[in-house]
């Protein structure tokens, strides 16, 4: 039974050509193009400054997911954004965060898990940023999964 259902869900997006008439309102699309880009940029800035100022991976990730939500609103649940396997993004983020902690066990002087050192080259880059990158990805992945899956409504 899974096979069958599975194929139907898999085929539906492919059958419909992703043409112009698939989109939501054109106003939303036009606005979303700029607004989403801008939000994504802001989210990156907030993410980067997070290690010693307000900000960080979580808030940056939420903002980036907000950008993703705009794109979803504009282009609908069949757009390329909705087809990314967002949960994989989360898992990769988790791996990045964990790996940072483990690598630091070997690199840092104290040898503690998730110890912190600062790299000064090529830019000012504390290792917390790598951990935060993982958090950023986890948050984007989780939120986008929620948006995409709850937005589908194919059951009806």
């Amino acid at each position: 039974m899974t096979e069958r259902d599975h194929n139907t869900t898999a085929d539906t997006p492919a059958d419909i050509p992703s043409s112009h008439d698939e989109k939501g309102s054109p106003v939303l699309c036009t606005v979303a193009k700029f607004a989403a880009t801008l939000t994504l940029l802001v989210s990156l800035i907030i993410f980067y400054q997070g290690h010693n100022l307000p900000g960080g991976g979580f808030i940056g990730g939420v903002l980036a997911a907000a950008a993703g939500a705009m794109v979803l609103l504009g282009w609908g649940a069949n757009s390329w954004v909705a087809r990314i396997a967002w949960w994989r993004v989360s898992v990769v983020g988790l791996l990045i965060s964990l790996t940072t902690g483990v690598v630091l066990m070997f690199v840092s002087p104290s040898g503690d898990f998730m110890d912190h050192i600062t790299l000064h080259w090529p830019i000012h880059l504390p290792t917390a940023t790598f951990f935060d990158l993982g958090v950023y990805l986890i948050v984007i992945g989780t939120l986008m999964t929620v948006f995409v899956e709850l937005g589908k409504e194919e059951g009806r």
């Binding site: 899974t2 259902d5 599975h6 869900t9 898999a10 087809r83 990314i84 396997a85 967002w86 949960w87 994989r88 999964t145 929620v146 995409v148 899956e149 709850l150 589908k152 409504e153 194919e154 059951g155």
Partner: peptide, 15 residues
């Protein structure tokens, strides 16, 4: 298909 997580299944089964 790429993403088929819990909510997906939820709806699939709901069908």
């Amino acid at each position: 298909p790429a993403a088929r997580s819990l909510p997906d299944v939820v709806q699939e089964l709901a069908k």
